[in-house]
Each structure stands twice: as structure tokens, then as C-alpha cells.
């Protein structure tokens, strides 16, 4: 099982190999894909990428939290959180690839 960490560089390298644009332009395209996803999510939209997964924004209400170290109560403001739900295809491929 691998334990490597891939970054933007690896994704742009893959784009470079696949399409044959310059390395610089490949990197810019990776960046703009991520930017468009972020923009849509920041606008409260759900981003659904078929056979990959769905990113959705959930509203969380205010609640009283606790500082685990001091036990002190702290109010937690209402906030928006992102959840990612992987597609069946992703789940199946990840499960199959990591099976011993």
C-alpha cells in the first residue's frame, strides 16, 4: 500500500502527460478547476462530479462548545461546513485497490 502524498504538481504533471500542453499551462488549468469548485461552494452551490463524488455545503447551527483542555464553555457561532460524499465508483475502486 502506498503512502505517498500527491500535490498539485502531480496533478499538473498528469495533465501535461495526457494533453501535451506546457507544464505551466497544465498547472494553471489544475488551479482553475480547483478555483471554480471553490467559487461554486462559496456561493453555497453543491458540486456534483459524476463518478467522482459530491461536495455539498451544510449549515450548522450555533451551539455551546467546551475547551477540552480547560473545560471552559465557549459559544460556537453558526457556520457552514463542507461535506464530501464519494461516488460508488470511487468507493469501489478505493476498496478494491487497498484490499490485501
Amino acid at each position: 500500500m502506498g503512502d505517498r502524498t500527491l500535490t498539485r504538481m502531480d496533478l499538473s504533471e498528469a495533465v501535461f502527460r495526457e494533453v501535451g500542453l506546457s507544464r505551466n499551462e497544465s498547472a494553471q488549468l489544475v488551479e482553475s478547476v480547483l478555483k471554480h469548485i471553490c467559487d461554486a461552494l462559496a456561493a453555497g452551490e453543491t458540486v456534483k462530479i459524476s463518478s467522482f463524488g459530491t461536495f455539498s455545503v451544510r449549515e450548522k447551527g450555533a451551539r455551546v462548545g467546551r475547551n477540552p483542555k480547560t473545560g471552559e464553555e465557549v459559544p460556537i457561532q453558526p457556520r457552514r461546513v463542507l461535506t464530501f460524499r464519494p461516488s460508488h465508483l470511487m468507493k469501489d475502486r478505493v476498496a478494491a485497490g487497498n484490499r490485501r
Binding site: 500500500m1 502506498g2 503512502d3 505517498r4 502524498t5 500527491l6 500535490t7 498539485r8 502531480d10 496533478l11 480547483l34 470511487m90 475502486r93 478505493v94 478494491a96 485497490g97 487497498n98
Partner: peptide, 11 residues
């Protein structure tokens, strides 16, 4: 990457 057990970290 995930099928190989790797992580993908996008800052």
C-alpha cells in the same frame, strides 16, 4: 492515487 493508498493534498 487513493486506489494505491496514497493521499492527495491540495493546499
Amino acid at each position: 492515487a487513493m486506489a494505491r493508498g496514497d493521499r492527495v493534498e491540495l493546499r
